[in-house]
Write a protein that binds this DNA or RNA. Structure first.
Lengths: 162, 162
DNA sequence: CAAAGTGCATAAAAGATTCATATAAAATAG
DNA sequence: CTATTTTATATGAATCTTTTATGCACTTTG
């Protein structure tokens, strides 16, 4: 009975489960650094040196905010700024060894936390998740590209206090 | 060949996939309200009226921060404060209809975003995820209870800028 | 009833983020 | 080749969030 078509509302049920998982994860994130800083370091780790404006767009903050953020991370020794010889207006931000180490440590902690949760599941459940692994990885890929919206409203306006 | 034991490193691989999914999700969160505010509203929606100190502990912020937060949300009409007749020191915070509506809307948007991603998967992948649904729900439950740590360090110290 | 404890609010200070604007360099028009 | 426009970043003022320290009101205990 394999390969039957999925139930029509499977995406909704799966979306609900994944959303719940994600929102709970947010509460357990380490708070020793801002989410924006951590995300910026992760971006640098994945893509290599980037310019300030690039990073600001990638993380969804304004350019001045990214300038300040990078200054702080530079003072902490996590990143370095170098000029771009081909265009002396730009500031290239790259990860230091300490920054790369921080990213690895933090990522490992997050992965381990999930791995420990998985170990609390039954064998059947772990097996089901292992079978769904390609789907999860594909989802992550789709999620990455989903950020490339057709450009329009740069960001919804704030509604209340932050 | 069903029900073979999972590979020994399945938890690590699954943990890695879920962590990637969660971190990408953080970037796509709406920024119209602080994470703390949104989480507080969600908590109120799930558990009903709570006192200020409860909420502060639940969200991992200090009590004065929660007081200010609640004041802001009250001014926005999302919550109401009522006194507790049995102990007149306490302030009970409860969701207004507008607050409940906001929580539902935001949650629905998150679920829909994931559901749309799921629709970009192949039928096989959706089927695999649907089969893993009980595991995902169980994980979410484990993740909830994981927050109940044995009490100790209330929060790691900040390391750099926020 | 007095002393100690609990729950919340306020004040002051520090950080982070935003918009607006300024400066510097590069690209382009004439 | 010079002037103008565009692009990349930095800076300043304002706002928002959170923290620590503190005070007040109420409750509980002896």
């Amino acid at each position: 009975m394999s390969h039957q078509d999925p139930a029509p509302d499977a995406p909704a049920a799966i979306g609900s489960a994944l959303y719940g998982l994600a929102t709970r994860a947010v509460r357990r994130l380490p708070r020793d650094m801002s989410l924006t800083s951590a995300a910026t370091l992760a971006t640098l780790d994945k893509t290599g040196p980037r310019r300030i404006t690039d990073l600001a767009a990638a993380e969804g903050v304004t350019q001045p905010a990214m300038t300040v953020l990078v200054r702080g991370m530079e003072e902490s020794g996590l990143v370095e700024r170098t000029g771009d010889p081909s265009d002396r207006r730009v500031t290239l931000v790259c990860l230091t060894e300490a920054g790369a180490s921080y990213v690895r440590t933090r990522r490992q902690a997050g992965v381990d936390a999930y791995a420990r949760l998985v170990e609390g599941l039954t064998d059947d459940e772990v097996e089901a998740l292992a079978a769904a692994l390609p789907a999860l990885l594909h989802l992550a890929e789709l999620e990455s590209h989903a950020g490339a919206e057709p450009e329009q409203s740069p960001r919804p306006k704030r509604r209340t206090s932050r």
